[in-house]
Amino acid sequence: MNLWRLPRLRAGALAVWRRNILVWRKLFVPALLMNFGEPVLYLLGLGFGLGHFVGDMSGMPYLAFLASGIIASSAMTTASFEGMYSVFTRMVPQKTYEAILATPLEVDDILAGEMLWCATKSLFSGIAILAVATLLGVVAGWQALWVLPVVFLIGLCFAGPAMIMSSLASNYDFFNYYFVLVITPMFILCGVFYPISTLPAVAQGAVQLLPLTHAVMLTRSLVAGAELTQPVLHITVLAVYAAISYYIAVILVRRKLLV
């Protein structure tokens, strides 16, 4: 049992994913309300309220600009919440992982299943926002459905770092640091509410390193019909963040649980 061994992807991950979806199904109604409630609030409150003063942004109505950005940031926060609060609950107080590790499954399988589950929840939120945006008439066309696999990838990309936080946390309060220092700055700076071209030059370079910037560029093109530039670069950045953070999380959780 080598701490640094590269993770193996096995079918066991799907059993973990399935366990989580069965729990989610029990709380289906409140979960769905959350999925719809928050984006509706953002889109109506900010989109109409702020949009009234802003008018157009980057050549599209502000509501379209915002909706196409929120779909990315919402995938980020959904996966981050699940990867921190829920994963930590299962890993530490509830000892679900301890129970699963008594079966043929390994840490690799558990975290792969959790990551798939986090991305699935991102997908649910993406579907909800896309539905609301369509009703508000700000979706460019059928090509917008391509945003759903992208939202899933965004979920994977942010689930990994969240699970790293879970493996380092000793209690729930620890996650506040990550939200204040990482998630909130990305939410504000990565082009969800305004184009990053309005940032100072130095800051523009810096935000290029952050995954949400690339996520927003993809979702804005697909949902609002903006020109899609460098899709391969954006997808690669998200995938690399997902893969590396998964590997680090696997090592940290092995170190935490297999002692």
């Binding site: 366990r19 509830q94 000892k95 679900t96 301890e98 129970a99 008594a102 079966t103 043929p104």
Partner: peptide, 14 residues
Amino acid sequence: RRRVGIVPQADNLD
């Protein structure tokens, strides 16, 4: 572990 049944010290039922 496929051929073993493990009963932990503290119950960890779901």
